[in-house]
């Protein structure tokens, strides 16, 4: 009995077909997030974050007061420094409490790990941050032209902060990393103002909207890339929680 003869091309296709069926394709970030959102719902994604939300609101009340009292001559400096604050404060409170809670280790062993959920939360916080930026811009701008100039600057600050924070958090895993990220943003936002004073304000004022929008888009893309890496960081061991 003779077998069916296959041409090399047919053989190649057959192998590809078998591999295609046999190998599991890695899920995309969005499909993973969709699945988590479907199964967990927002109630469980933001489970036990009420205390963090309350702490954030109190902090933001202070920030709002600071913005309203800040001199008009430092409008851009204040806008740049304060735009990421909602994102930063919510993330700081929610995730620091999560890491400090006794369940972090257990949640790393579940099918959907706390790292994946944290990534989804951070993404949600950034959306909240965009809304906050819009609000801050609306408060600062005097006309539509200013809105179009200030909003990209505000988003630029938000996404630079989000990218830098996540970059740091992903590399320096630990219980105080979120606090470190917040401190780093404080340094990034305040140091130029302290060192260069009016020059920094003039620099921000002189930045064309197209530049700030471009930087905002680039930083947003880098932030999303960091989110993706953060969810895949499963393969990096959680020794600092597990052992320490």
């Amino acid at each position: 009995m003779t077998g069916i003869e296959l041409t090399p091309a047919e053989k190649e296709r057959a192998i590809e077909n078998i591999l295609d069926r046999g190998l599991r394709k890695p899920r995309s970030l969005w499909s993973a997030f969709r699945e988590i959102r479907r199964l967990l719902g927002y109630r469980f994604i933001f489970w036990d974050t009420a205390q963090a939300a309350a702490s954030s609101l109190i902090t933001l009340a202070g920030v709002a007061l600071f913005i309203s009292l800040s001199p008009a001559a430092l409008r851009h400096t204040v806008l740049f420094a304060c735009s990421p604050l909602l994102f930063m404060v919510v993330m700081l409170f929610a995730e620091t409490m999560e890491c400090a809670g006794g369940l972090y280790e257990l949640k790393l062993t579940c099918r959907y790990t706390i790292r994946q959920i944290t990534a989804l939360r951070i993404l949600c916080f950034s959306l909240l941050g965009i809304a906050f930026c819009a609000g801050v811009t609306a408060c600062q701008a005097e006309n539509m032209h200013e809105v179009l100039r200030l909003f990209p600057l505000s988003l630029c600050a938000l996404f630079i902060c989000a990218f830098v924070s996540l970059f740091l958090i992903r590399r320096l895993a630990g219980k105080l990393t979120y606090a470190l990220a917040a401190a780093l943003w404080g340094a990034i936002a305040c140091l130029p103002a302290l060192l260069f004073g009016k020059t920094w304000e003039l620099f921000l004022l002189g930045l064309p909207s197209v530049v700030t929008a471009g930087v905002a888009l680039l930083a947003a893309a880098l932030f999303l890339l960091e989110i993706k890496k953060f969810t895949r960081a499963r393969r990096e061991e959680a020794a600092h929680y597990a052992v320490g």
Partner: peptide, 16 residues
């Protein structure tokens, strides 16, 4: 501050 039932429902979701 949660009941065991709520807690288990939460972890069930994490477990898929």
């Amino acid at each position: 501050n949660h009941s065991p039932r709520d807690f288990l429902l939460y972890l069930s979701a994490l477990k898929g």
